[in-house]
Computed example of a mutant assay.
Amino acid sequence: MDVFGAVAEQYEHARPGYPPEITEAILAYHGGTPTSVVEVAAGTGKGTEVLVPLGAPLTCVEPDPRMAARLAERFPDVHIEVTTFERWSPPAGGAGVLACALAWHWLDPATRNAYARRALAPGGTLAVFGHRYDYADAAQRDAVRAALRSVDRTARERPVDWFHRDIVEHGQFDDVRREVFRRELPLDKERYLALMRTFGPYLARTPEQQRRGIAALDRLVDDFGGTVVLDLRTTLVLGRADAR
């Protein structure tokens, strides 16, 4: 996950935030203000923005010190622990809410559900949410995918709402629910390319592949008339850690 530290500032400015309805949905599911909230892999605080309004003491766990530094600038009242989720020690009695925004895939697949369950107090709430970036125009989607495949044919997308299935199938949580929020996000070429430069698959490629990919997208946006309209799908998955 340390690939993002080098682009922490760009990440903060380019990534879209989360709808405020996520705050309301967590409060309604939990049954009111929780005693405490822990956010796993908080990054620069995109998810933190909708967790602070929950009105509870908030701890953010973030392994990259550069991301954590940007997070501390934005949220000076939040307690930050610079460590991985796997090395972090939950509070005595467990957290009221454990949240993870667009980072569930960075946690160990073999242990993340069990660790999350153990980190929560009895009756506590798991809240995992994230964006899926698609295109409002199918022709734009097809053109972008073809351009990126020409640069690297190994790239693969995860299934839609894959983390909902992951949480259900591991069976650690009861009353698992899913809510989906959608909005169109028009971006000019500068903002679109800045966003693309913050994605993990881009950052994991060689400098030459990065250059070729951005050049191909630059030409495409010109062909689109200078604007890309994203279909931004935000999924929230909620689960309860009932006493066992």
Results as ranks from 00 to 15, higher is better:
96 G>Y: 06
92 A>H: 15
104 W>S: 04
127 A>S: 05
101 A>V: 02
98 L>T: 09
89 S>H: 13
99 A>P: 05
120 L>M: 09
125 T>Q: 02
87 R>A: 14
73 E>I: 07
115 Y>G: 13
121 A>L: 07
89 S>T: 12
97 V>E: 03
102 L>M: 11
92 A>T: 14
109 P>E: 02
79 H>T: 12
115 Y>D: 13
92 A>I: 13
123 G>A: 04
95 A>L: 10
91 P>R: 11
102 L>I: 14
109 P>K: 05
124 G>M: 08
103 A>Y: 11
117 R>D: 05
122 P>A: 03
74 R>H: 07
120 L>S: 02
83 T>N: 01
106 W>S: 06
77 D>C: 09
97 V>Q: 06
75 F>N: 02
122 P>K: 03
116 A>S: 15
94 G>P: 15
96 G>E: 08
118 R>M: 06
118 R>N: 08
84 T>K: 09
75 F>D: 02
87 R>D: 15
128 V>T: 06
76 P>A: 00
80 I>P: 00
74 R>A: 02
124 G>F: 01
104 W>K: 13
121 A>Y: 12
87 R>K: 14
87 R>N: 13
100 C>I: 14
78 V>C: 07
120 L>R: 04
77 D>Q: 08
105 H>G: 10
88 W>C: 08
77 D>E: 13
116 A>R: 10
103 A>P: 12
101 A>I: 01
120 L>D: 02
82 V>Q: 06
89 S>R: 15
122 P>F: 02
82 V>K: 10
85 F>T: 11
79 H>E: 10
120 L>G: 03
92 A>C: 14
109 P>C: 03
124 G>Q: 04
74 R>F: 02
113 N>W: 01
84 T>P: 03
82 V>F: 11
110 A>E: 15
100 C>L: 12
